[in-house]
């Protein structure tokens, strides 16, 4: 495989990991957050600085980044998650901007707006694929267990969810932290695959990109989000869109989705392992539906 293709695939995989975090937070729990990019920045910088300055191995730096993200997430989440959802979105936007400005301000460690240079490309394609698949399994487990049901209930009717016994604040905080871990890991991987990082890589437009992917793929469909993530990351790379066209295209996607397919491209459809096996085996076990007693 040529290195150009490999680097595009690595980039796509990293993007997908971050997108999965966004899917849990925005898709299933209904919390629109512009803060995901802030956690990517924390992961990237903590891992890069601890490696370059303190000689910490990449794996340890990645975990340290996760730890820092969890701490920051705990503080941010505790103060913002009691807000109404629209104010929460604004607050997370502020959080991401603050992170960016902190990175520029403390230039002694972070290199300011010049960023950190000369990070070795430790991250390989198999490594990204393995981490992505692990993240995918975690997300799937989340969705099919009580965690997913709790989140969907909160998204649909928070008061009813409370009355049915869900501690909504705790659930939202846990999901926020969990998605921060995804963002942080994606950031660490990004730093060690692009040679350098700078604050402008973690702009609000990156958050918008993640949001558009989740929205386009379908807020209820893990399959859809993964598909949309691949399509919207790969296509611009392959077709060589400039950065200036990207925003135009994203906007168009949002409008078209809202008009023709408000539940997202895949709606509620999920690809399951048993379906894939079913296709392989032919049409042997087609209708094994639950219930069946009739109305």
């Amino acid at each position: 495989m040529n290195s150009y293709l490999a680097s595009i695939l690595i980039f796509t995989g990293i993007n997908l990991i971050s997108v999965l975090g966004m899917f849990l937070l925005m898709g299933l729990t209904g919390l629109l957050s512009f803060g995901q990019v802030g956690f990517m920045a924390i992961g990237a910088y903590v891992t890069a600085i601890s490696y370059m300055r303190f000689g910490l191995p990449f794996g340890a730096g990645l975990l340290l980044g996760v730890g820092v993200s969890l701490l920051v997430g705990l503080v941010i989440g505790t103060v913002t998650l009691k807000l109404r959802n629209d104010y929460f979105a604004l607050a997370t936007y502020g959080f991401a901007e603050v992170i960016k400005n902190v990175l520029i301000y403390f230039s002694g460690y972070t290199g300011g707006s010049m960023g950190v240079f000369g990070i070795p490309a430790i991250v390989t394609l198999p490594m990204v694929i393995v981490i992505f698949l692990a993240a995918l399994v975690l997300c799937r487990n989340f969705k099919v267990s009580k965690l997913g049901r709790n989140s969907l209930a909160i998204r649909n009717d928070e008061l009813a969810a409370k009355v049915m016994g869900i501690n909504t604040f705790k659930q939202k905080l846990l999901v926020f932290l969990f998605s921060a871990v995804f963002g942080s890991v994606a950031g660490s991987l990004l730093a060690f695959s692009t040679y350098y990082i700078e604050p402008n890589m973690f702009n609000w437009s990156k958050s918008v990109e993640l949001i558009v992917i989740v929205f386009f793929g379908g807020i209820n469909s893990l399959t859809g989000v993964v598909f949309a993530g691949m399509a919207l990351t790969l296509l611009p790379e392959i077709l060589h869109f400039g950065a200036e066209w990207r925003m135009v295209i994203y906007t168009a996607i949002i409008i078209v989705t809202m008009i023709y397919r408000p539940t997202g491209l895949f709606g509620r459809w999920e690809l399951s392992l048993s379906q894939i096996l079913g296709w392989i085996k032919g049409r042997r076990k087609s209708a094994v539906g639950r219930g069946g007693q009739g109305a």
Partner: peptide
């Protein structure tokens, strides 16, 4: 006030969550 994102089965199942 049912949960529109959950099917009939999951609407009831989510209410068992407080005991899992």
């Amino acid at each position: 006030r049912l949960f529109k994102g959950l099917n009939v089965f999951d609407n009831v199942k989510m209410a068992t969550n407080c005991r899992t």
